[in-house]
Design a protein around this nucleic acid. Structure first.
Lengths: 220, 220
DNA sequence: TGGCTAATTTAGGCATGGCTAAATCCAGGC
DNA sequence: GCCTGGATTTAGCCATGCCTAAATTAGCCA
């Protein structure tokens, strides 16, 4: 990662990134390996620290959705604030209370307690060739409007779709066959990933109901 | 409240208190009414802000105990960190998930959603006259050792006790009558409050089991 | 009323994590 | 091999919330 890539992602000035990278590289143990004017990369320790935060964030998202009845487009911001103060003990209690889940409400893998690195994401819808059949795997969690749009279209993790055309616009059919074709917006197909049915661990498990949790929180 | 009283309670230097009081008094709306060199007092808005934090803190404590299986002496610190980042929506969802409870695990009243001020606490055990029968009402939540000691003695909110003697040490019997007398440490009786049975809303409701939650979290 | 002591406030620092502006670096084009 | 422009780093500020040390205030007693 270069300094400016990080600055863009974090919506922060490059100078601030430089300062923070220097600090993280000087930490004990160092969390990044930093080569002046040349970019930085996570160390082993840095990757574990990052995975711990990701684990916490995703468990919180699932908790807010499953146990408190939040809609799947509302959980990200709350989790973002909570993730930095939730202690390790609470993370594990949350995991236990949720049954040590493998995925958050958006389909993202939840790192296990050992902080094993998680594999690469599935393929973006925008990269699927026409004729291809795939299972929705995950969607970015930081754009509520995207998530609401997906819910409205019935485009949820676990749903199977078939690509009819990729240009000029992505046209797909949902479900098995014969359903009415949908035209998917370009910004959507660039931020939703899918997998071949034979790879998906979500197939035919159309997630209780990501959007609004109409049944209410599970412990009422 | 004077500056030094606040400094003591907050374990902070008086100079820091002065600075913060000036800031809170200058806030819009002002949260404290501050008279230079003369002390400060909460404004209406300040009291509401404080009650909102207390409500959040106590709901979190109850949540951690009831839903995540924390022991009652472990919840305070976690709640202290969480209370400042939990948003208003989550507070109300927690309240709903817990059934809009009136008390936290230590017996403290939870302010309602309207932030109605809560009444004065019950009487300290140390102030009960010999011969008096009372129901344990609440205990300070910020001292895990005290809470563990109470649990070990069976001194839980809702438990009825009778004071046999107040000096030189407080001796009590727990439960109805005839039980073996207990001698209570001075630091304990100064931090646990009780009420006359006819005032208590906890009578004969010896709280499922404050200490360890042996049945595990309620939604397993 | 003067003065003394304790309480309080002011003045000036430190660390965090952001910022801008200015210097420096470096890679590609000539 | 230079030179130039974008990327990067440095230098120097700002706000927060805490600190210490010094000045000030206030209340009490003679």
């Amino acid at each position: 990662m270069t300094t400016s890539q990080l600055a863009d992602r974090l919506a922060v000035r490059p100078a601030s990134v430089t300062a923070m990278l220097q600090k993280l590289a000087a930490a004990e143990p160092p969390l990044v390996e930093y080569h002046k004017s040349r970019g930085a990369r996570l160390t082993e320790a840095g990757q574990r620290a990052a995975l711990a935060v990701v684990r916490c964030h995703r468990l919180l998202e699932l908790f807010l959705h499953e146990k408190l009845g939040y809609a799947w487009d509302e959980v990200h911001d709350e989790a973002d604030r909570l993730e930095h103060v939730v202690g390790p003990a609470m993370v594990e209690r949350l995991a236990a209370a949720l049954g040590h889940p493998a995925r958050d409400p958006h389909g993202h893998a939840i790192p296990d307690a050992d902080l094993t690195p998680i594999g690469p994401a599935a393929t973006l819808l925008s990269a699927l060739p026409a004729g291809c059949t795939a299972v929705i795997d995950q969607a970015r969690d930081d754009d509520p409007a995207l998530l609401r749009q997906m819910a409205a279209l019935g485009l949820l993790p676990g749903i199977t779709l078939t690509v009819l055309a990729e240009a000029p616009a992505t046209r797909v059919t949902l479900g098995a066959r014969g359903a009415t074709p949908l035209e998917l917006p370009a910004d959507l197909v660039a931020r939703v990933a899918a997998e071949p049915p034979e790879f998906s661990t979500l197939t035919n498990r159309p997630s209780k109901t990501m959007p609004a949790s109409p049944f209410g929180p599970s412990f009422f």
